[in-house]
Design a binder for these strands. Structure first.
Lengths: 204, 204
DNA sequence: CAGCTAAAATACATGCATGTATGTATAACG
DNA sequence: CGTTATACATACATGCATGTATTTTAGCTG
């Protein structure tokens, strides 16, 4: 029923909201377009008008939430800092602090982590997340490589193991937080964990 | 076709093997029983003879692989040790060391983590994993609670945050390892990370 | 006010996975 | 050696999600 142009954009957003809700509740594969339409108070017709299919809808939802990593990290900024490790620690803690305030990011990230199969028809959409992860890991490793060059990295670590441990710690914190919910205080567990880890990077 | 009894058990195992393979390749939700049957060189009839449906097949596969956590940790053993933290660190490192040798556990755990939606029709099967996770977390927290009572836990930590950080670190290590594959040396990243974390638990 | 088109709703065709019913060959058993 | 239950394969019915075609409604334009 041909509403105004702003109205159409509004229903597009409503469809994306509904998709987030139903994907979160039922998982991606188990969710049908009818269910999303019903959640949004419409029919599948509206969805097919705005999106080509479920995959494109999923990717649109993914795009709408800028994941925390992309929000704060800038490799150039890190590589330029005088104390790279201190800056990385500081930035990471800031991400941990801000994460709980981003409801949408939280829900979408939770869908990507726990409510979506990593392969199958969603391969393309998930490849983008994996690429973003890889890209992130590479940039982190570059930071540690530079740190190693300056002799500021403890002999216990190499650039690769240091980057791997950092990524494991951060991703572990986020997934446990998303999995457990309110019982998990991201900062309370994350700050001492990362502090200890970064102290170890420096120890001679 | 009525083969001998051992033959039947053999095809049951073959079906489970095929399920692991196809689940790993395509994800759980995207896998049909026909595909599993084809991979095993049979028809769906064989599957429906041995298993009630896909969910029961999945649970059987889950049961066949004893996950690493259940393999090594025994809370009673830990609580009885004279130096609980040292024992926990030691046991954890042993798990990290042995994990790469368990091909089946690795594949099944990878399915549970990355190739299976956390909710939906598989709810029941996945609830078992979540219960096991919760149970594990509770036992770990109990260890840290005892440590705290004896005054051996640094003031920086509480039993809860310490347990959370431990679980985050371990689960982060495992998921990164499973996600990245050969590029991730579990021990090389895990040993210094956990050493640093446990040193922090002790610091006064 | 008529006509056009954007924004949906509705209707329809197709495919496919599931579950179940039935068929069948053979091992086990008396 | 005949019977029976086992271990499957095959055939069939059902439901349901998808994609597309068609229709309806209402803004916009002249």
């Amino acid at each position: 029923m041909r509403r105004t142009k702003e109205c159409a954009e509004q229903t597009r957003e409503a469809i994306l909201d509904a998709a987030e809700t139903v994907f979160f509740r039922q998982g991606v594969a188990a969710t049908t377009l009818s269910q999303i339409a019903a959640e949004a108070g419409m029919t599948r017709g509206a969805i097919y008008w705005h999106f080509e299919n479920k995959l494109e809808l999923f990717k649109a939802m993914q795009d709408r939430a800028h994941l925390p990593k992309e929000r704060l990290f800038d490799a150039g900024q890190l590589l330029g800092a005088e104390d790279m490790l201190a800056t990385l620690l500081e930035k990471t803690l800031e991400v941990l602090r801000l994460a709980p305030t981003d409801e949408r990011g939280k829900r979408v990230y939770s869908i990507l982590l726990f409510r979506c199969e990593y392969i199958g028809e969603m391969q393309e959409a998930l490849a983008r997340m994996r690429d973003s992860d890889d890209d992130f890991a590479v940039r982190i490793e570059r930071v540690f490589a530079r740190t190693e060059e300056t002799g500021a990295l403890s002999g216990e670590w190499t650039a690769k193991t240091a980057a791997n441990a950092y990524c494991a710690a951060v991703s572990g914190l986020f997934s446990q937080w998303l999995k457990i919910g309110d019982g998990f205080d991201l900062m309370a567990a994350g700050r001492p964990l990362l502090t200890a880890l970064f102290a170890s990077y420096r120890a001679r």
